[in-house]
Simulated assay, not measured.
Amino acid sequence: MARVLELRSLDALEGYRLVWHRLWQETRRADFFLTYEWFVTYWRHFGLDKQMRVLLVESDREIVGIVPLVLITRPASWGQIRTLTYPLDDWGGFYGPVGATPTATLMAALRHVADSPRDWNILDLRWVDRTRTDGLRTPTAMQQVGMLPIAQPWMEYPVIELVGGWDTLQQARPAERRRETERQLRRLKERHDVRLVRHRPAGGRGRQDADPRWDLFNACVALAEKSWQGRQADGTTLAHAKTRDFLCDLHGTASQLGCVDMNVLYLDDQPAAYAYNYVHQGRVLGLRTGYDPDFRAECPGAALIRLMVEDSCRRGDVEIDLGPGRTRFKNDWANRLAVSYRYTYYSDSFRGRLLRLRRWWNDRFSSQEDILARRSA
């Protein structure tokens, strides 16, 4: 029978670093956001107002899976709302159990949550990849432990599938968009020396290729600060100090794991646009992009995406997730739309019942399209 260990501090978690790394390597469609390094850095930057609930599932004296959870307390008009959820905060697109046995892991972890004293009002499992990895695992497990969930689409992500290669991708795009993209790039090359620098270290564990290329990282930051992002007083842009420091702390460890994918477009040796991504097993996750407004008329961002996609095809990448929300450049390239889901259970406390009623009221008068538009904006 499975046993669940609940860890509530980084000191307790430290002893399971290697176990977590092994399970991450066994996880289907794993990405950088499911790593030990992501969680620890996230916690050091954003854990001050949260409580850790990392659940390790043990079977036959071996850890077979991990379900990282955090307890977040937020103020409301009728008091504090305590939410038990995944530690992602919309930095990435999808989240879930770590390990090769996600069904058994999630079932054991949720049974532990259901049987433990409830210091939370809401169990809110967001960012679930229902189509590609989860199926109905999450709502089924919640239901079987007595926590009937409310399901809701959470965010949508335009994705470029690259399995057929560059020629296949180009042929599938509308001819008008394809011609416009090639015309923009041709004109840009007529006026400038155009060069895409793409840095993707293989990692330091056994490969000895973990150069973080801080010069390129700093170029991405400088472009973000020069663009409209630099004028934002808050938010999660790379120009914002809190975000910059967080991603800077992650950059070195992501390089060690071979999960960094940096792209900088140079025009006459001057940085003009960037795309800062994470990558694992040929799946690229777009994190932050930007361009120098001095080159706005020449569409450097469009040129960067064009060259980056072609380069990914040459490298044998599987897909590029362009991040949440729809923009023109994303619509120009995406050939599939991925959707994350949210599964919510409200406790039987008075506050939990009030929250469930408010959720019902909001969903009653909103279409799924309206919900997705708000979440993906």
Rank of each mutant, 00 (worst) to 15 (best):
L125Y: 02
R186W: 14
G99Y: 13
L71C: 06
H112R: 14
D124S: 10
D124V: 01
R74H: 00
D60H: 09
A109L: 07
P87H: 09
T85C: 03
V70A: 01
I66G: 09
G92C: 06
G79A: 03
P149T: 02
W127A: 01
M107G: 06
T168I: 15
D60V: 14
L55T: 15
R137S: 05
P149H: 07
Q171E: 13
L125S: 02
R173F: 15
T168V: 13
I66H: 06
L69N: 05
P174V: 08
V145E: 02
E161I: 12
K189C: 07
R191Q: 09
W166L: 11
P68M: 10
Q144K: 14
A76I: 12
I63M: 14
R191M: 05
Q144L: 03
R118N: 02
V64S: 13
R187M: 04
G146Q: 01
V64M: 14
V64I: 15
T140F: 01
A114Y: 13
L136T: 09
R178P: 10
Y95K: 04
V113W: 13
S77H: 03
V128R: 02
P75R: 01
D167R: 09
T181A: 10
Q80A: 05
R191E: 06
G96A: 13
T73Q: 04
D167A: 09
Q80S: 05
E58P: 12
L110Y: 07
I63S: 15
G96E: 08
I150A: 15
Q184W: 04
G92A: 02
L148K: 08
D134V: 03
N121R: 09
I63E: 14
R178E: 10
A151E: 10
Q80I: 00
K189T: 09
H112F: 13
Q80N: 12
W127H: 06
Y95G: 02
L185Q: 01
T105P: 08
E182F: 04
D167Q: 07
L125T: 00
R132E: 08
L84P: 00
L123I: 01
Y157R: 11
T168L: 15
W78Y: 11
R53V: 04
V64N: 15
R186H: 08
L110R: 07
V159R: 04
L162Q: 09
V64H: 13
T168E: 13
T181V: 05
Q171S: 15
T105K: 12
T138I: 08
R187G: 04
P153H: 10
L110H: 03
T181K: 11
W154K: 02
E58I: 14
G79E: 10
P68G: 08
L56Y: 15
K189I: 03
L106R: 06
D129W: 03
R173M: 12
E161T: 11
L56D: 13
V128I: 08
G92M: 10
E176C: 15
G79Y: 03
W78A: 13
W127N: 05
Q143S: 00
